[in-house]
């Protein structure tokens, strides 16, 4: 038997905040008519939470449901469960136009935690990260430096960021560089 591996196993850097790779995380993209009750029911039954409002994320017992676009949610779950989530959605949505696909391995997930977390992201993303403007419950799809990313808050001073697997090293490097001691902005 072999081990499945995430993009940057064990990657960690300490600074104004810690940046660490979260390991294998399950992620399923579901594209469908989100206003369809059948779709909402399937998401709730399979993902464990309701479909979030526009640009929001709902925390579920085994993960989260993130609103990605008017016709798309991302279901976050354990890595091992992802193929089952796809199969369950396909089963529950038979006859309903939808696309469920496992994207767990197309992604890398980083946790950014510490007092400088907001500032680190504000160095890289063209986003208003002021505490009055960005709070837990919101999901932001944007870019960090030169790559697409999405992030949300998992607690005070804690962010979870998802980007593409192929640019895991780049994303880690720009995050770690931004967190480097001496670069504290002390703005927020």
């Amino acid at each position: 038997m072999f081990n499945s591996v995430s993009a940057l196993p064990g990657a960690f850097s300490a600074g104004a905040a810690t940046v660490s790779e979260a390991g294998l995380v399950g992620m399923v993209t579901l594209k469908a008519d989100l206003t369809d009750k059948k779709v909402a029911a399937a998401v709730f039954e399979v993902g464990g939470a309701k479909i979030p409002g526009q640009r929001c994320i709902e925390i579920a017992p085994a993960g989260a449901i993130a609103w990605m676009a008017p016709d798309e949610v991302l279901i976050v779950c354990s890595h091992a469960d992802a193929p089952g989530v796809v199969a369950d959605l396909d089963a529950k949505l038979t006859g309903t136009h939808h696309l469920a696909v496992n994207v767990s391995d197309a992604r890398v997930v980083f946790d950014i935690q510490g007092p400088g977390a907001r500032e680190i992201l504000a160095k890289l993303a063209p986003v208003d990260l002021h505490p009055d403007s960005f709070q837990p419950g919101e999901l932001r799809r944007t870019r960090i430096a030169q790559v697409a990313a999405a992030f949300w808050m998992t607690g005070d001073d804690a962010f979870r960021l998802v980007t593409f697997r192929s640019v895991a090293q780049y994303a880690f490097d720009v995050l770690a560089m931004s967190a480097k001691p001496g670069g504290e902005v002390r703005y927020f």
Binding site: V147, F164, R165, V167, Q169, A171
Partner: peptide, 15 residues
């Protein structure tokens, strides 16, 4: 800004 040296631009890496 940060875009110099190894992170001048993103390099995409396969598994």
């Amino acid at each position: 800004g940060e875009a110099r040296g190894d992170i001048f631009q993103p390099l995409r890496r396969t598994p």
